[in-house]
Design a protein around this nucleic acid. Structure first.
Length: 422
DNA sequence: TCTGGGGTCCTAGGACCC
DNA sequence: TCTGGGGTCCTAGGACCC
């Protein structure tokens, strides 16, 4: 048995948790660069603000409904996520963190000592009491059914946030009510093709022949079918899987046409990517950089390109990664475009920097690399000072917009919430 | 004017090998 | 004129997730 617990409208709820004055008002959180709507509370959904809509298209509706609008504040959401996950780990036997706001809980053995639905309510109450965030809990014999149960827990308020699908009859009753596109693993494209085959509900998908589904789609969807029938195909993950790839990219606050600005941005993404790499304790050999113009710009030719470099020796030294990324940039740079976004990708990971060298190779690893990188990381971790690479620039006029950013309530002492006793 | 960022997995097809 | 069979590895692209 699995449970899937997730926080309702996570980003919007994090903002609301520190702003009791907004109670009852619609709240919306925007993506990086204040681009699209990526989270809405219940009131904002009622007001008809669409998920994923570009902000400029819903700005008027927001004003009309007095919506409170926030730029994304990942320092806040990351810290709140950490609190939620830590609490879950305190009260649940095995927790697998699946995303910033949801976790699978392996319920093996739990049903021997308590009713699963009761346990679901205990989880909800604990998180609500300690963080002010409301979770939905779905329970089922497979991860896919637990996901579906969670969906139902949020959709029907009379469930009070907990749905237990242990019994086959309940599974089938619920699946008959749910559109196939709501099933975990079925996106827009696949649901369209399924509809064309006459499969419209989750139940119809569960009753389809796995062999037929595999023939028309893939083993991935076949697994989904089996999971819907209660046959577990997705195992509980013991350890967090190691990353295969690290990507750091951002849209620019304003379009960039100047090489020097683009170079600063690429350097900065390279620096962040290298930090992530060291945090994962990995070394990489494959480095690439990409840049693209906006696909939505009328009357402009779209240009996007990606170039990469394979190093001789795996590295985790920021200087190597900057050098490679800027070399890639020079290969892809084209004058005369208004670029919208760029980024750096790392891949081909090793657990150490030493590779077998050829007999006549003249490459020598950098001296003191580890100490230097450790020193830089420490300075940033302490937060007592800042050092950066010259290539990152000083003004950084290309940086993204976050015009409606809330304070870092939980991670910066001088931005902590003040409470006045009256 | 203004459209996010960061990942995963699978498959098909080409290059290459014997 | 006739033009195999079986395999591996890599990459690009498509689909999905939050």
């Amino acid at each position: 048995m699995f449970a899937l617990a997730d926080v309702n409208s996570f980003y919007a709820s994090c903002e609301a948790a520190f702003r009791p004055d907004l109670k009852g008002r619609p709240i919306v959180v925007l993506s990086n660069n204040d681009g699209c709507v990526i989270a809405r509370n219940k009131e904002a959904k009622v007001a008809g603000i669409q998920m994923g809509a570009p902000f400029f298209k819903v700005r008027q509706a927001c004003e009309q409904h007095k919506v409170a609008i926030f730029s994304s504040n990942y320092a806040l959401y990351g810290d709140m996520s950490y609190r939620v996950m830590t609490l879950l780990e305190e009260i649940c036997p095995k927790v697998e963190i699946y995303s910033i706001d949801e976790a699978f809980i392996d319920l093996q053995g739990v049903s021997n000592c308590k009713n699963l639905e009761t346990f679901g309510h205990e989880i909800r109450d604990k998180i609500d009491k300690c963080t002010g965030l409301k979770m939905g809990v779905g329970i089922g014999p497979t991860k896919t059914l637990a996901k579906l149960a969670n969906h139902a827990a949020k959709k029907w308020s009379k469930t009070e946030g907990v749905v237990d699908l242990s019994l086959l009859a309940r599974q089938r009753k619920l699946m008959a009510l749910i559109e196939v596109g709501e099933v975990w693993g079925v996106g827009r494209r696949i649901s369209k093709r399924l509809n064309a085959m006459g499969i419209n509900t989750a139940l119809q998908l569960a009753d389809a022949s796995p062999a037929l589904i595999r023939k028309h789609f893939s083993v991935v969807l076949e697994r989904t079918v089996r999971e819907l029938r209660g046959e577990p195909c997705l195992e509980p993950e013991e350890l967090a899987p190691t990353k295969q790839q690290i990507i750091c990219s951002r849209s620019f606050g304003d379009r960039v046409s100047q090489y020097s600005l683009m170079r600063e941005a690429i350097c900065s993404h390279a620096v962040r990517a290298a930090e992530k790499l060291r945090k994962e304790n990995r070394y990489c050999r494959h480095i690439s950089a990409f840049a693209k113009t906006s696909p939505f710009a009328d009357g402009e030719d779209y240009y996007g390109n990606c170039c990469s470099i394979q190093l001789q020796i795996p590295t985790q030294d920021t200087r190597d990664i900057i050098a490679a990324a800027t070399k890639c940039l020079d290969d892809l740079w084209k004058e005369g475009h208004r670029f919208q976004k760029c980024g750096v990708m790392l891949g081909d990971f090793y657990s150490q920097g030493v590779a077998q060298l050829g007999l006549f190779d003249e490459i020598k690893p950098r001296a003191n690399s580890e100490q230097l990188m450790a020193a830089i990381d420490l300075i940033h971790k302490d937060g007592k000072g800042r050092v950066w690479f010259a290539g990152q620039g000083v003004e950084r006029s290309w940086e993204m917009k976050r015009e409606m950013l809330s304070p870092a309530y939980t991670t910066r002492v001088n931005e902590i919430m003040k409470v006045r006793m009256i």
